[in-house]
Design a protein around this nucleic acid. Sequence first.
RNA 1: GCCCCGAUAGCUCAGUAGGAUAGAGCACAGGAUUCCUAAUCCUGGUGCCGCAGGUUCGAAUCCUGCUCGGGGCACCA
Length: 541
Amino acid sequence: MREKVKSIIDKYLKDKGYSLEYAIEYPKNERFGDYSTNFAMILGSKLKKNPREVANDFVNNLCTDIFNKIDIADPGFINFYIKKETFLKELLKIAKNKENYFKSKINKQKFIQVEFVSANPTGPLHVGHGRGAAIGDSIARILKFFGHKVEKEYYINDAGLQMELLGQSLYARYKQLLGIDDALPEDGYKGEYLIDIARELIVEYGENLLKMEESKVIEFCKNKASETILKDIMDTLEKFRVSFDKIFNEKHLYQSNEVEESLNLLKEKGVVYEKDGASWFKSTNFGDDKDRVLKRKNGAFTYFASDIAYHRNKFLKRGFDEVIDIWGSDHHGYVKRVKSAIEAMNIDSEKLKVILVQIVNLLRNGEKISMSTRKGEFVELENVINEVGVDAARFMFVSRSIDSHLDFDLELAKKQSNDNPVYYVQYAYARINSILNQLENETEVDLENVLNLKEKEEIDLIKSLIKFKDLLEKAFKERDPYFITKGLLGISEKFHRFYNKHKVIGSEKNIFKARLLLIKTVAVSLKLGFDLIGIEAKKRM
RNA sequence: GCCCCGAUAGCUCAGUAGGAUAGAGCACAGGAUUCCUAAUCCUGGUGCCGCAGGUUCGAAUCCUGCUCGGGGCACCA
């Protein structure tokens, strides 16, 4: 619909030989029509002409019948009032095309990777990971819906010091349980979960591990701990309806020699130099604050080095057209250097989109829950899911724009009332199904029937569906599922209003048919939105 | 010290590539159900858009400086 209006304006501009950028918006106030544009003001100032004159010329040259009226308002807005019939025809179009109505065309299919969560298997996931998971998974669903080829990936840094510490920590716990006095390494992992794993070791192996060579047993503990924890992480994610196409290990980049190759590639490009016994990447050439170390004095590669290899692998080995990395906002200092490295390898850094997810504050009845490790249990994603349910959690996580802090109140997420937006939208869907359950056969509906819709609540509801299409497109283009929740709330609000004022069952036959079509179409639209953010379309509540 | 993000109603947030009287939910008060689920709907008002300048027909939005909050500035991951 919006495109229709836009194409009319574009055609006018083209005929006149102008090209300019302008806005078409939904006016905040209903009395300014259904759509409004500022192009006359922009063109007016360009041509040094009165915007009203420009607007008048546009209106006088118009030939289309989709509008009821067109107003020119000060200081030069053009307000379009769309005919009721135009909306009703649009409703038929949605009803006919179902989900496909909401898909706008893409120029070409791209092969896109979405990499998210990527938490090291050194401990359970916390709520911050949960937000990243909900966002990443939803983005992948949205991209797929619009026709792109998508691969979801989880990256594990299993080559570094952290995993070593994990192994040592587990071994220490194991010894402690056997009554041997041993302290956790400094900066070791203190969580309870390692004690549980240590117990499993005792059940399986008794005291036998003590007989092994120290380096071997730590290696063994490292693998045991990471495998166990990774499995727990994946279980939690599965429960959260998040799955991955691939788990990628940092180790692989060393085994396949890709870290070395990447370093050589950068050397060939002349952006690596030696200083103080270390190898440095000249990232300042690409706008970074300072140069970064790739290979340390002690001969070990930095995490950054393997990350360069990883991104080279994504673009050059696997050929993604676009890569979306979803990181916690505390990693933002990292963006510049990774992009620098990508550019140094002659890859268009625009192809890498790093999405930084803002932090989550977990609240209970408005009180902030401490994030300290002592109370660590509370902030575990697993516990949150168990407490409030997957639907509420996923909805909450994507219900604010990504770069906005999120206050997540556990009590609110559980409330079964209109405070809670999750139930508000799900309830709308359930109400529709409750009506449909009481009916038997499908009825054929045509324009003739639909023309019977004339109540304000009916037209408003249709408008909310049309707007949903714009919001989906926005979610797609901005790569932010937040806009879907916005659309779902909009449709639900209009539906509840309609429902309270008008009957479907028992209304006059033609009206009944038309309303039935209307609510079925609403159900299809809601269902689509639910699917895209991974929440359940409940038929009863 | 340098860099990034934020600051909008009592609270949580929108504000769509500068536009019309700055919006929504919650909270608060009152009302609606003989009838498709009241987890719903209707009616009420609230703002130095952090501060100060600038750009222009027009700024919450763009520019500059400042204040406050969060985060980042390793041969850690």
